[in-house]
Design a protein around this nucleic acid. Sequence first.
RNA 1: GGUUCCGUAGCUCAGUUGGAUAGAGCAACAGCCUUCUAAGCUGUGGGUCCCGCGUUCGAAUCGCGGCGGAAUCACCA
Length: 598
Amino acid sequence: MADFESIVLNSTIEAIKILYNSDVSPEVVQLQETRTEFEGDFTLVVFPFVKISKKNPELTANEIGNYLVQNCEVVEKFNVIKGFLNLSVKQTNWLKFIRNLSANETFGLQDPNSSGSKVMIEYSSPNTNKPLHLGHVRNNLLGYSLSKILQANGHEVIKVNLVNDRGIHICKSMLAWKKWGEGITPEKAGKKGDHLVGDFYVKFDLEYKKQIKALLEQGISQEEAEKKAPLIIEAQEMLQKWEAHDESVTSLWKMMNGWVYEGFSETYKKMGVDFDRIYYESETYLLGKALVQKGLEKGVLYQRPDSSVWIDLTKDGLDEKLLLRSDGTSVYMTQDLGTAAQRFEEYNMQELIYVVGNEQNYHFQVLSLVMDKLGFSWAKNLKHMSYGMVELPSGKMKSREGTVVDADDLVDEMVNTAREMSKELGKLDEYSPEQTEEIVRMIGLAALKYFILKVDPKKNMLFDPKESIDFNGNTGPFVQYSYARIQSIFRKAADQNIKMSDVQESTAVSVDKEKSLIRMLYKFPAVVADAGKNLSPAVIANYVYDLSKEFNQFYHDCPILKEENSEVRNLRLHLSEHTGKVIKKSMNLLGIDVPERM
RNA sequence: GGUUCCGUAGCUCAGUUGGAUAGAGCAACAGCCUUCUAAGCUGUGGGUCCCGCGUUCGAAUCGCGGCGGAAUCACCA
């Protein structure tokens, strides 16, 4: 079924050809939704055509309007306000649209892999020296939701995670555990492994600072003290041993990383995110050196006297960038060059999207440029899905000041709040503890996820704990509540033995709220496409909120089961059903579950 | 200093090929449960869309110049 806009658009082009003997391209035709305060469904902006018609806007609009009513099969009537031609789609077309929905379970979603495009999306990418925090939460939720949105747009999606499991920061935790851990394990401590390891990272920093302070008191400069402190030297030695595959260091590393992985997978599971493939930096950090060699041979890169390798990007408005240290070891960029090449070779995808914070905008600009200069055709298909930082009312999160919001704690708190709130409202009194727990989990998580995803990803956002646990208004629980209400209607309908039948095209759509709900549902496919194009879960979140609000108004204004006219009742049941389905699909695209009751 | 991003109601945010009188939520106040879940609905108040200039029939949206904020510019990742 062609959508109404394209039908109207084609007819408009035709109208202008016939009325004014002029050819206009589709881009010139501005068709938008009619604002609610005016009558109509779609509005044609006629200003662009007055030059062609050589008549004033009102007259032009009337002429086009008349033509469309007579010649466009979906246009019923029109009105003109200023230069705006408001068009009403025939009611039978809307009813047909609703009727077709019943036979279209995948409404709004493209068939899996139908676009012929394969996309790899990298997200999460944690360090294994401390637990996940609020910043990672935004990353994980965005990455997971985007993968769903891209799938809904018909792309084949490969979700990958690149775990940073090696490096000096990992050695710091390891060293601290060795020195002060007294053989403690997550079991003995009764603590998640990632949190335990994080404690030792903090411990290292604490002791390191003490040593620096002591050195400063001996009159050594800050810079030198940071380099000379025995702890950091030990950590560096440990890193060298690790790179040399020293047995004792490796086994310690494996053990502690194992703890962290276990902790992470618990957190991932709790948040409901997953991956198709996990890469480890310990296995990829040496990649990229061969590419650098090739770049040197091609003359794209150059070597300095100290034998470090650089690329000059000053002509591209950037700086010179180091790709290999003077001792021949890799930097972060080198590895990223290598892994990108490896991935394109292995998966042959069209695009690689990195979900990484905007503090690395420069890095990804360089990455893509370097790849381009090295001659990889897909360099322009490396996309950085850059998102803004999460700030707290007190400002930025600082681990030193203990203001980091831990991911596990955060989820637990949201769930606890949901539990208290449900108890207070007496919502779940009749359910078993297990059922209650499941629903309460869903609500708490929805509050958190929706709160984060509703904000445009590229913007920095403020995470106010007080606001995040609000379950009223523009929130996840509000959307869930709307869904639960709908399910309740159908439970009642079953009790009363009310059956649904096909929507009759003769049904009167007499209430505004019915009409606006239909229009809202109609928009869904365009919203999914928009979210995919702009890589923005926020587009979905804002839509599903508007849809839910619209439904609640409809629910308030219109009796459904109690409606006596059976045709109207039937229509309202269909509208409720399809609203429920679209809410569920939308929330699914956000990685949020919806409860049958709450 | 260079580059990039941001600035909309008291607060948090929508508003994307330039379109009509700039919208929600929270907070405040006032209403609505003997009728399908009140985690809901309705109403009131609240705006120099950071400022200025320009392009245009028309600018929150585009361009230029300011002001304010953030990120980044490591032989860190």
